[in-house]
């Protein structure tokens, strides 16, 4: 009985893995070397890739700086406020990206909540690189904060008490004990947030637009290419798969090395 169950479970698992791999295999099979060379030489390619790398590096860095203390607080607080904040932080995960885009426009657009005030200071947010970063920040940071909170929950309070009695300040105990113990989980959070930021499409399209060289990230370049040249879209997609895969493998390796 258990053997049959195990075989059935294995079969279901294999089916899902197959389904996950099929699009990637189809992508790889549908591009020739000539397509690849032409795609990589296309004027939109370098701009979109650099913009994607630059904006995701920025949004993920901001996420780590702001999200680490927040994750720590969520992990160590038992107040009802932290429950509310926890739900608020998770909300962008379940809200469709298009909704996030509309929300950001209503907040920072010319007619938005803060638009006029920002305009009077000479700051325009929508349809700029800053808008790309903001959109990524909103959709990607919740993944990091969640991972950080669950990583910090694994830090035993006793280890911090011991570190303090040995002479560490509260900040010292956090930096020298809590952070290193939570590091593998934090790195998983970074890879999740980075992957989400790199793939961000809907909120970026609505809030930042799709302007080559200015706000056109890789996913938007794929979207544009698909309208004129499918092979170009395939090549861009393959590059994005490679970049995403490299980031995932690199951070996994780092996370293993730390654990």
């Amino acid at each position: 009985m258990t053997r049959a169950l195990r075989a059935m479970g294995g079969l279901l698992g294999v089916a899902l893995v197959g389904l996950l791999l099929i699009p990637l295999v189809a992508l790889a099979l549908s591009a020739s070397w000539a397509d690849l060379r032409a795609g990589l030489a296309h004027p939109a390619f370098a701009d979109a890739l650099l913009l994607s790398l630059r904006t995701t590096l920025t949004s993920v860095s901001i996420t780590v700086v702001l999200g680490t203390p927040l994750g720590w607080w969520l992990a160590s607080s038992h107040s009802s406020l932290s429950q509310v904040v926890s739900v608020a932080v998770e909300l962008p995960i379940v809200v469709p990206p298009a909704v996030v885009g509309v929300g950001l426009l209503q907040a920072f657009g010319a007619q938005g909540l803060f638009g006029p005030a920002l305009a009077s200071l000479g700051v325009v947010v929508p349809f700029t690189e800053l808008a790309v970063v903001l959109a990524q920040l909103v959709v990607a940071s919740p993944f990091f904060v969640q991972a950080a909170a669950s990583a910090f929950r694994k830090v035993e309070p006793d280890t911090l008490i011991v570190a303090r009695t040995l002479g560490a300040s509260p900040v010292g105990a956090f930096v020298r004990v809590a952070l290193p113990i939570a590091a593998p989980g934090l790195l998983v959070g970074v890879s999740l947030a980075w992957a989400r930021a790199l793939g961000e499409f809907g909120a970026t399209l609505l809030f930042a637009g799709n302007m080559p060289g200015r706000t056109q990230t890789m996913p938007l370049a794929i979207f544009s290419a698909l309208e004129s040249d499918v092979q170009l879209a395939v090549v861009f997609s393959l590059v994005l798969v490679a970049v995403g895969g490299l980031i995932l493998v690199g951070l996994r390796w780092l996370s293993r090395a730390r654990a």
């Binding site: 006793d158 280890t159 008490i161 011991v162 303090r164 300040s169 010292g172 113990i181 590091a183 730390r258």
Partner: peptide
């Protein structure tokens, strides 16, 4: 006196060893 200046040694029930060291 804050914890770090009490000069108190503490061995908690679960020992609280630093797993990363």
């Amino acid at each position: 006196v804050p914890m770090e200046r009490r000069r108190v040694g503490y061995v908690p029930q679960g020992y609280g060893l630093f797993g990363h060291l």
